[in-house]
Design a protein around this nucleic acid. Structure first.
Lengths: 334, 334
DNA sequence: GGCGGTTGTGGAATCGATTGTGCATTGCTG
DNA sequence: CAGCAATGCACAATCGATTCCACAACCGCC
């Protein structure tokens, strides 16, 4: 369709200078309404589009945001994890609403300089990191000299980097209270124990049990992140247990789904005999059987918030970390 | 860490010309081993990294591939769809293995020129489109003048663009045969009826039934794409049915999960009374209960293949479309 | 010692846009 | 009608790298 290669060529055809065309199309600067119209229609007809790379070089902006997913030790860890994928999707939407593109990178944090490398290349205007976990220290260091960065994850006191995440402790409280209201007395917490987010959720649960004088009954069911491994972990532990809990708080929806499968395998009725509540609010939770009651982190809102904060940081503003108040999604597993 | 802003500054510090530095770091051209070493260590110490935008402009390559997900009429259609998210993840891995970045874009194909716009901007060296569906015609047109494009989807005879996808008809055959081997006689096909991929799968099923003299017993259970809507569609139809099928082929894993939920709701035993087989091979299929038997499209391999073909096209080669032979993943739902 | 050939390096053009500055031209005011 | 401001446009610098070309130094050989 378009035979036009670059601005200069277009300018010759239009009989004006490149400067005028640039200004006419961008709407900045003084151009007569008449020529603006003429150039606009001509551009449309010839299918001219400015070269983004050249523009980026000149303007020193790329209109692109890097989304980094740090993978854990096992490279395959997050591949089948619906959480990261769902989050990435929401981010793509939120960013494109603001005219930004999303450069997706999964990184294996081998050295401590994975973040520096990414930043230094100048490919992106800012970055969003999904999950702190083992990389907390690196993120914290980098945040002191690199401003346009927002991280999904928990917020600890004294933390320097800007994070967005749900209030994990409040979420844990919400989950435990719900189970107790439903009549549970022997409560278990299933899920990974590493990672600040999960720890906070567990603390929330413990706090409620303590208030209710049920502390000593908390059962801990540690598990891996990865869905299949989590299922195996949970199954092994539940299978050998003397007395089943009557309510299980899972550290994530992925874990919760593993718990449901394990209970199914053991032919334990959910929610009749054991009630299960997840954490995340992933769409997939509605698709399992029984549909999963869960603590909703409002990922869509979280993604929107991260983008908003990042844009403010790009504008030079200093922004505070934000916690999102979690809320319950009641379905059939409790 | 690094106070170095650009090549020129670095060159002054190093006491050589920019040309030499560029050659030393890229390893192209003639540079004495001694200076190469010196510059390499200096670059490392100063944390110098070449500006990617400038390099892209000069070399006319971006080392970036655009991954386009055309959304249907409903913008929310694919957000909760694990298929796209899983595929995107695999593509990210395959691309980064070859040093390419992944620019993710979800597009609402409002006009016919969404593809042209994307291509013309020069942001990417090539593109991968996930799913043809309603945009088949646009893709076909563009493919005649824009070479570096590979599409995930079916392959129809006479098709010009390069596609990678599973052999949908063969997959349908595989699924139907499996159910019949398991003793099913009243077979149903559940899933969206639009879209070339699903049509082919249905054809495969029909072919098997025809061969077995079971043609007239095929029950069709049309449904939407979107998980929740699919569940509702299936439930409504199964609820009102005179005689239940004893085997159900689902057009996708998402549909299959909806089928499982509907059957659970109706308290129909799976696989005892009805057997269910999905299509896709998504990881999430292993996480539902009962774990889903499914036709595996080998998405990871598919993603790798798309990247490989795209790279060949970038090198100017003409490539043929490829079909991936599907295979069964046997789990507990059949 | 002169000469072709290799090797290492620097100068400068180049990629394609954006944008500050300057120069006509036009319009308005007193 | 002089003088000044506003308007519309072109020229050229600029962003930061890569790479073509030229050139000097050095080598070995006759």
């Amino acid at each position: 369709m378009s035979n036009i290669k670059n601005l200069k060529e277009f300018a010759q055809l239009a009989g004006v200078s490149t400067a005028t065309i640039s200004r006419a199309l961008s709407g900045t600067g003084r151009v007569s309404e008449e020529t603006r119209q003429r150039i606009a229609t001509l551009a449309d007809r010839l299918g001219y589009q400015p070269n983004v790379t050249a523009r980026n070089l000149r303007t020193q902006r790329t209109m692109t945001v890097g989304v980094l997913v740090p993978l854990g030790h096992e490279a395959a860890q997050h591949l089948s994890d619906p959480f990261f994928n769902t989050m990435t999707g929401f981010l793509a939407d939120a960013l494109s609403d603001h005219g930004y593109d999303l450069l997706l990178s999964r990184v294996l944090p081998k050295s401590d300089r994975w973040l520096d490398r990414y930043i230094g290349s100048g490919k992106v205007d800012g970055i969003i990191v999904i999950g702190q976990s083992t990389e907390f220290a690196v993120i914290e260091t980098v945040s002191r000299r690199y401003l346009p960065m927002v991280v999904w994850g928990g917020q600890v006191s004294g933390q320097h980097h800007c994070s967005v995440g749900s209030d994990n402790r409040a979420g844990g409280i919400l989950a435990a209270r719900h189970l107790i209201e439903r009549g549970c007395r022997r409560i278990a917490f299933a899920g990974p124990t590493r990672g600040p987010e999960f720890g906070e959720r567990l603390q929330g649960v413990k706090q409620v049990l303590h208030e209710q004088g049920l502390s000593e009954t908390l059962i801990e069911l540690p598990s891996h992140f990865e869905p299949e491994a989590a299922f195996a972990d949970i199954l092994a532990q539940l299978d050998g247990i003397a007395e089943l809990p009557d309510g299980i708080v899972a550290g994530s929806d992925v874990t919760a789904i593993g718990v449901l499968r394990a209970l199914q395998e053991l032919q334990v009725d959910v929610p009749g005999r054991v009630k299960v509540i997840g954490y995340d609010g992933l769409p997939v939770g509605a698709q399992v059987s029984p549909p999963l009651t869960t603590v909703d982190q409002q990922l869509r809102r979280g993604a929107g918030l991260m983008v908003e904060l990042l844009l403010r940081r790009l504008a030079g503003e200093a922004t505070e970390s934000r916690m999102i108040a979690p809320n319950l999604i009641l379905r059939s597993s409790t």
